[in-house]
């Protein structure tokens, strides 16, 4: 009913406090505490680096490949954390929904903001690694926020869309877990896209139409090396190249509409 009261004072306070609590609780009771926010992606990177770069010798021709790999895995972790936390947010905060009245999107946004904070911390690590690895800092570094925002909006759209279905059908959480595993291999994170492009240019183009792949490749392009293949420099047709953006917007808009319609009944159904 009516236009949702977008971030008024009360909602802002609530959003900030919920995000703070989520973040605190995440590392509650662990010895290393917030350090895990850094350690997890670094350990993941170490494993992938040993297996793929050292044992399987993939990515030898890409400059600064370790940083390139770390950047990909971090952004992928951001996407998976953002979506899985966001999808479960309504169910996890069921106690609140049943007892106070507030705009429901706040719990979804606060759950995803925790992932954003983690990602920003990791971004600092990537930049340090990049400098150690000899990547020269340029003004184009600032441009990474464009694909980062794109990736966030995509995650938020997915969280709204699947999160509202998950309230009634909890299978969504499990389905998404499996889907994410499959998606991981469909996106050039551990393997360079040039590997696909050398066998089939069409396959590489199809992969690059995926908004997640588009964002990750853009971030690598701006941050690490402009030899990175991106949707923009690989797909010549500008209309086709806009598909990832259109997918993101479509998911966000449809997600928001469905979420808004269903959110009226969350308190009863959760």
């Amino acid at each position: 009913m009516g236009i949702p009261r977008v971030l008024n004072r009360k909602n802002r306070i609530l959003l900030a406090e919920l995000t703070k609590t989520d973040f605190k609780l995440r590392y509650q009771g662990s010895v290393l505490g917030y350090l895990w926010a850094l350690l997890r992606p670094l350990l993941m990177f170490a494993i992938l680096y040993i297996v793929f770069a050292k044992l399987l010798k993939i990515g030898g021709d890409i400059p600064h490949y370790p940083v390139y790999l770390l950047c990909g895995t971090t952004m992928w972790s951001f996407f998976t954390e953002c979506t899985s936390q966001g999808i479960q947010a309504i169910v996890n905060r069921g106690d609140l929904l049943r007892k106070i009245s507030f705009p429901k999107y706040i719990v979804v946004v606060s759950a995803t903001l925790t992932a954003v904070i983690n990602m920003l911390i990791n971004l600092v690590v990537i930049i340090i690694f990049a400098l150690i690895n000899g990547v020269a800092p340029t003004w184009s570094w600032l441009l990474i926020f464009i694909p980062l925002i794109g990736l966030y909006l995509l995650s938020l759209g997915i969280a709204f869309l699947l999160g509202s279905i998950n309230v009634k059908y909890r299978d969504i959480t499990s389905i998404w877990d499996v889907l994410v595993q499959a998606l991981f291999y469909a996106i050039p994170i551990i393997y360079p896209i040039s590997m696909v492009a050398s066998t089939s240019a069409t396959a590489a183009k199809i992969i690059l139409l995926d908004p997640i792949a588009q964002c990750i490749q853009d971030i690598r392009y701006f941050l690490i090396t402009n030899e990175t293949i991106t949707t923009w420099n690989y797909i010549n047709n500008k209309f086709l190249a806009a598909i990832p953006i259109l997918i993101t917007l479509a998911i966000l808009i449809i997600g928001a509409i469905i979420f808004r319609r269903k959110s009226k009944f969350f308190a009863e159904e959760v």
């Binding site: 609590t21 605190k24 106690d95």
Partner: peptide, 19 residues
Amino acid sequence: VGFNPELTGRENVYMNGAL
């Protein structure tokens, strides 16, 4: 509402106040 057993009394007061 929103009291969390893993947080301190202080943190819970601020959380509950925000609600």
